[in-house]
């Protein structure tokens, strides 16, 4: 079986600036491919090519084994490649179910009597969200009252419902706190379990490592290599991303700082000791 999505030596230039060169990877159903890189590594160019916002200049882009050139995000969507952007494409003041179906509303009736099928829309919303493991109290609840993680999850559930086979998640955890990021990571695992191919873009190896099956590292528009989960540890991943030597230098600095800190701590402890014993006196 050919992978859902594959790129071979793909590249993109803006004038004389090479934004991306010679990047290859493939995404199969039921796997999570993490694309890691620091700011300016070419992550956004890469996903814009995959999502149809940019056309690639070199290399090959294959969907279901056949080469494609996408001219718009709509085209990508029609082939089942859905992108969930950071800005989420949701209207905060509108209820969850209205947001869920915004732009693709289910209707019943005919001609001038064509109207929203509200019962079906609410029911579908509730079911799809439950399948993702999100329980909302009330589909009438405005999206603005959901937490950041829940909002991301609604966006993911929506993409899945509208026929996505490959989900591209653009930094879904970057604006979230630790707990909320955990919520989103869980939904990524849910999507994977449902057999979707997930491309998870992030600059945080600690978010990528627990959920990823493959790790594609980008730096200055080039691939630093692609690793399976068994080939690499989270420490190695971090080191590769930051650039080994730089991180080692940083490590020395931190260690030196640590020595200073330890000495200060010691002094504080000795100063505090007599005070404490005085306090204990009645």
């Amino acid at each position: 079986m050919s992978p859902l999505l594959e790129v071979r030596g793909i590249g993109k230039q803006f004038g004389s600036v090479v934004a991306l060169a010679d990047v290859s990877t493939q995404v199969s159903g039921g796997t999570v491919t993490c694309v890691l890189g620091d700011n300016g590594a070419g992550k956004s160019t890469f996903i814009k090519i995959l999502s149809g916002a940019h056309r690639h200049d070199s290399g090959e882009y294959l969907i279901d084994g056949s080469a494609v050139r996408l001219d718009s995000p709509r085209e990508a969507l029609d082939r089942g490649i859905a992108t969930v952007y950071q800005d989420l494409a949701m209207v905060p003041l509108m209820p969850v179910w209205r947001n869920f179906f915004l732009g693709s509303e289910p209707t019943k009736g005919w001609g001038p009597l064509r109207r929203l099928d509200i019962a079906r829309a609410k029911e579908t919303t509730r079911r799809e969200l439950l399948d993702m493991g999100i329980e909302i109290r009330d589909p009438e609840q405005p999206v603005g009252t959901l937490s950041g993680g829940e909002r991301q999850s609604v966006a993911i559930a929506r993409a899945v419902h509208f026929g996505a086979r490959v989900l591209i998640l653009d930094e879904p955890t970057s604006a979230l706190g630790v707990k909320q990021a955990g919520v989103v990571l869980r939904y990524i695992m849910q999507a994977r379990q449902r057999g979707l191919g997930v491309i998870f873009i992030t600059h945080n190896p600690h978010h990528a490592y627990p959920v990823g099956d493959r790790f594609l590292l980008l730096k200055r528009g080039r691939s630093l290599g692609e690793y399976g989960k068994d080939d690499i540890t989270v420490a190695e991943l971090t080191q590769l991303m930051a650039g080994g030597a730089e991180l080692e230098q940083l490590g020395h600095e931190l260690a030196a700082f640590g020595e200073v800190a330890a000495r200060i701590e010691e002094e504080v402890a000795t100063l505090a000791a007599p005070v404490k014993s005085e306090d204990e006196q009645p």
Binding site: A89, M90, V91, L102, E105, R115, I118
Partner: peptide, 24 residues
Amino acid sequence: RRTAFGNWVFSVGGDVRAARNVGV
């Protein structure tokens, strides 16, 4: 409240970029 157009009205006033992104 009961038609797709009504949904679009709320969305273009609520967040026009989001509305455009989902094809309104």
